[in-house]
């Protein structure tokens, strides 16, 4: 692969406490975003006694926004100030590179775009790891992710199927899944994917799927490899 291409658009994802999502969208609209989509998600707290009492699922909002590259960094910094992302337990914001955007301007999928080079100092060091697992495997999966030293993850309820040919009462069967999103450094991301794929026996169909996307910039991480969330 040559130098990674970065389109003039980035996808900014913000994970905050439930209810704050709409504030994030309206704040971002004043700072260059054209709008946002809010998804109901859940965070997993890592404090031990909360875990022991199973009070560790905290409602969160996951906000997705497409913004132009030239205001992406400014917006992330503004959000970081606004939401105090430097403090613990506030949230996290990160941006992912996007190659094509439709809907905000009259663009078609094949529209050529000029590319900005990635910043040297903030170049892809983090990855967003998406693990789609069976709903009932979620808790174990989050534990496995934690065992690598990563702080856990945010998850979204979903459902899907790998095998459409298996019919149940003459309908293709679907089952409940969870999408776990974890932000991790390169080394951690590697460890997570390895541990998870071994645990889930990921190569068997229907057990899940894992993929990672390089993160452009991230706010809400205090030290190397440690999320503040």
């Amino acid at each position: 692969m040559d130098t990674p291409e970065i389109a003039p658009f980035s996808l900014i994802a913000v994970i905050v406490q439930r209810g704050i999502g709409s504030k994030v969208v309206s704040f971002s609209k004043d700072h260059g975003s054209s709008g946002g989509t809010i998804i109901h998600a859940y965070g997993t707290a890592s404090r031990r006694w909360l875990k022991a009492l199973r009070l560790d699922n905290i409602s969160r909002d996951l906000v997705l926004m497409l913004v132009r590259d030239n205001c992406e960094e400014k917006l992330l910094d503004a959000l970081s100030d606004y939401l105090h992302l430097g403090d613990s337990n506030t949230g996290i914001a990160f941006s992912l590179p996007v190659s094509h955007v439709l809907g905000t301007k009259k663009l078609s999928f094949d529209t050529e775009v000029t590319c900005a080079p990635p910043d040297a100092d903030e170049a892809v060091d983090y990855y967003a790891v998406f693990s789609i697992v069976r709903d009932l495997d979620r808790e174990d999966a989050v534990e496995k992710i934690r065992s690598t030293g990563a702080p856990g993850g945010t998850y979204i309820d979903a459902f899907g199927s790998a095998d459409m040919s298996r019919l149940i009462f003459n309908m293709p069967s679907f089952s409940e899944k969870s999408i776990i999103v974890t932000i991790a450094s390169h080394a951690k991301a590697r460890e997570i994917t390895e541990v998870l794929s071994r645990f889930l026996k990921i190569d068997e169909p229907g057990n899940g799927i894992i993929f990672a996307v390089p993160v452009h910039r991230v706010r809400g991480i205090a030290k190397e490899g440690e999320l503040v969330i």
Binding site: F159, I168, F169, M171, P172, S173, F174, S175, E176
Partner: peptide, 12 residues
């Protein structure tokens, strides 16, 4: 929950 578990086997 029972109703959801039962009806969820097919596409939403």
């Amino acid at each position: 929950a029972l109703a959801i578990g039962t009806s969820r086997y097919r596409a939403h």
